[in-house]
Structure formats: structure tokens, C-alpha cells
């Protein structure tokens, strides 16, 4: 049979695997959140870029047709059909991804706890507690942002 010392190592390894999958889930959650905010970011970026370009060239940039096309194209991104579809899919998947990620991270913390003497498991546990805070913030903030937009 497997002795308790090896069991401890196996627990740590399983915890590390679940931790890695949980991080991937967390990235997906943030992708959903960022996509929801992306149109604001793009809008602000284009305005800043246009403002700086116009000021630096003393208004000459506006006389260039290419620059005007670029500006109008950039503003169209936020109403692009594919972009809106991606946004919709991510928003739809968000509750599932968030729930699965939450379960995986909790399971990972439980497994890692059995192997807490291992320095790498310990650092993963510390990272998990930081992620837990970020995750809770994401769960609170994302529905507010997306709900507000709807």
C-alpha cells in the first residue's frame, strides 16, 4: 500500500494540478470581465491617441485621409458583430467558468493544505489566498459592470 508520506506528496501534486487549472479558469473569468470593459478602453485609447496626434501635429493630422479612416475604423470596433458575439459568449459562460474555477481553487487549497510543509505548496497556498480575494472582487464587480451595461 502507499504510505502516508507518499500520500502527502500525491496530495500536493494533485493540489498543484488543480491550482494550475484554477489559474486558467481565473484568466478566462478576467477575459470575460475585460471584454465587457474593452469597448470603454478602446474608446478612451482612440480619443487619447487622436488628441495627442492632433495636438502634436498642430491639427495637420486631420487633413490626412488615412488618419481619418483609421479613427472612424477604430470607433467601429465597439459595434463590430464578431466582437459583440465574443462578448456575448464570454458573458454567457462567465457564471459556469466562475463556479468551476471556484470549486477547483477550493479543492486545490484543501489538497495543498495536506502538503503545506513543502515550500512550493506553501507559496501556492499564499497565492491562492490572494487569488481568492481577487476572485471575490471579480464576482462582485463583473456583474455590476456587465449589468450596468445591459
Amino acid at each position: 500500500m502507499i504510505n502516508s508520506q507518499v500520500k502527502r506528496r500525491i496530495m500536493g501534486h494533485l493540489g498543484a494540478i488543480l491550482f494550475n487549472i484554477g489559474i486558467f479558469g481565473l484568466i478566462l473569468c478576467f477575459a470575460a470581465a475585460i471584454t465587457g470593459l474593452l469597448w470603454i478602453v478602446i474608446f478612451l485609447f482612440v480619443i487619447c491617441f487622436a488628441f495627442i496626434s492632433v495636438v502634436c501635429t498642430l491639427g495637420l493630422a486631420l487633413t490626412d485621409a488615412g488618419f481619418r479612416n483609421f479613427l472612424s475604423g477604430a470607433f467601429k470596433i465597439s459595434t463590430n458583430e464578431k466582437f459583440l458575439l465574443l462578448l456575448e459568449q464570454l458573458v454567457k459562460a462567465f457564471p459556469w467558468v466562475a463556479a468551476i474555477t471556484g470549486i477547483l481553487l477550493v479543492a486545490s487549497a484543501i489538497f495543498l493544505f495536506f502538503d503545506k510543509d513543502n515550500p512550493s505548496s506553501k507559496s501556492r497556498l499564499i497565492a491562492l489566498s490572494v487569488f481568492a480575494v481577487i476572485f471575490i472582487i471579480a464576482i462582485i464587480v463583473v456583474p455590476i459592470v456587465l449589468g450596468g451595461k445591459a
Partner: peptide, 14 residues
Amino acid sequence: LLYYVISIFGIFDV
């Protein structure tokens, strides 16, 4: 094999 399956073909393995 348990690690391999859980880590989705070893992609998320350590």
C-alpha cells in the same frame, strides 16, 4: 495516469 487525466493530457501538470 491519474495526474495525466486530471491535468487534461498533462497540459496542466507540474
